[in-house]
Design a protein around this nucleic acid. Sequence first.
RNA 1: GGGGUGGUAGUUAAGUCGGUUAUAACGCCGGCCUGUCACGCCGGAGGCCGCGGGUUCGAGUCCCGUCCACCCCGCCA
Length: 633
Amino acid sequence: MARFIDELKRTHSCGQLRAEHNGQEVVLFGWVQYYRDFGGLRFIDLRDRDGLTQVVFDPDVDAASHALADTLRSEWVVGVRGVVRDRGQQFSRKKGEMVSAHNPDLATGAIEVVAREAVVFNRAETPPFEIEDDTDTNEEKRLQFRYLDLRRPKLQRVFRMRSRMNLAARRYLSEEGFLELETPILVKYTPGGARNFLVPSRLHAGKFYALAESPQLFKQLYMIAGFERYYQIVKCFRDEDLRLDRQPEFTQIDMEMSFVNQDDVFRAVEGLLFTLWREVFGVDLGERYPVLSHGGRFPRMAFEESMRRFGNDKPDLRFGLEHTDLTGLVVAHEGGGIALLKDLADAYARGEDRRELPRRIVKAMVVPASAALSRAETDKLEDYVKGMGSKGLARARVAEDGTWTQSPFARTVTPAFREAVNAATGARGGDLLIFQFGATAMVHTVMANLRLHLGRKLGLIPEYGTRGDDWRFLWVVDPPLFEHDEKENRWVAAHHAFTRPHDDSVPFLETEPGRVLCHRYDVVLNGFEIGGGSIRLHDPEVQTRVFRALGISDEEARVKFGFLLDALRYGAPPHGGIALGMDRLVLLAAGAESIRDVVAFPKTQKGTDLMTDAPNHVSPEQLAELRVRVVEG
RNA sequence: GGGGUGGUAGUUAAGUCGGUUAUAACGCCGGCCUGUCACGCCGGAGGCCGCGGGUUCGAGUCCCGUCCACCCCGCCA
């Protein structure tokens, strides 16, 4: 029977001991963080998930453990029995006088544990990098040794936060009458939306399951089944390209409610987010977000306004640098003397482009004079936007008298158009105007990214994370139900095909699909979409018309969504819901740099796991059993 | 699929106009040290310069290709 662990049980954690424990005998287990060897006297800092405690090995107290301490190295796993002692005053050889031996930088810095007995549970190879918070080791190496990276207190805090968040969410939702219900992960493939990962079926050669991209259809079936309020903290899978805030598998706090409208969903989500921020992050959002006149908490912005002012549907409201849409001015001034814009104005004049559904637009942004961007810097911005499909970055420096200099437009622009642009954008002397024109989506993408890029560059927002408690929540509401696919020249569902259109939009379903708005909503925080959902379409008649607008035949609809269409015919309650991105919530709350910092075992941007080397090849025998053949590409 | 950034001891970086022995810090190993706390001091080991090809008398450095990681576009809520 082993002395430590079996007989000597851990009495305290390494973050626990204080002066009040002076004189107690304790048993600590942990990892060697640092060792400081004076020959005669040896110190180690012992680390467990709670903190660090200094252990001193004194030959006059116990010669055996003092000798053992000579062998200790970083990350060895050890147990210590010893006595807590106030560090008191000690003679400092460096300073030549008596000084306090307390370490104010350490929570346990008032005390130390004098070892009476020690054991090495396990030695450790020299780790490939040091286990400390301010590591500069690159992420590739840290992901390869993720289990070591996860030892760093910084990451330990993130995953404790995740754990508390799970608990707080479950408690809140349970108290609000939501039932935690499970949904399948192996599901039927349904086309549209995100790509699914496919799983070959051994029992049905040549057939495949899909990994659920979300529990969407099943949570609706729970509503039809009469459970009224559902939630689940659930993994979802999407086989799409990755980004800073996207992993191929990720976690959602998924919710669905019956007999509710949009306001009801908003209130439930606001309540949840208030709870999480209060209980997990210690922030009272009530100070910034009192109850508003509509009964909700967070401000709301129409999708159209968000696109117009910020160029995307997830605006970061922490700073300005808003966009101005100049399309109307350009048309009114017939290009304003600028050859590049004349063509666009003419297209509108001929009716090829329409204001309701513009294929091409012109936008501008004012960079304040205080930014003092140099020519070299704006040239770099031009390279940056070209990477996003832009042809260039036209700009104009506004002089005190309102004229433009340093601009390809300066020579030909009409004074009237110039003044109109200055007025519309609010540009003043010294400011720099930045223009984008061309395909709508490209202009929005470029301008939205430029805004964020400049916001960071000018220090209006930090490179990542949040300064102080600057949490800016927003509901983005009323987006169009359909998007126009330019390549295939047809309408496609902007979200999924079961989103409820606005009642006053329904008449446009057949005539002008682009004008149909819907009860879809995203909750946005500091430029991240942290959740999205919709009120679902439960009226079979309108559902049929939506499918028709999408060019989906009844037959096709039956093949794709038959089970849900059937279910909707058997008495579906009005219902709606939302899914919150758990990883993104933690990313923001923890002030992390990337989603990989808040996922325990994340994939790289190419979807590989550097630690396990997934995905990998499998044997021909396995493939044969699945009746799958790999084709060389 | 496209654009950009990076890859040099275990780790992080420097490496000039192509030039002969590729530097530094931390870490590691050995030694000394009874009050340190990122201890200190002395000594030492450690390199496929991502990989492949080319140019050259000579390549970490120039050229071509390729792999890996990251950021972005497309894609994706």
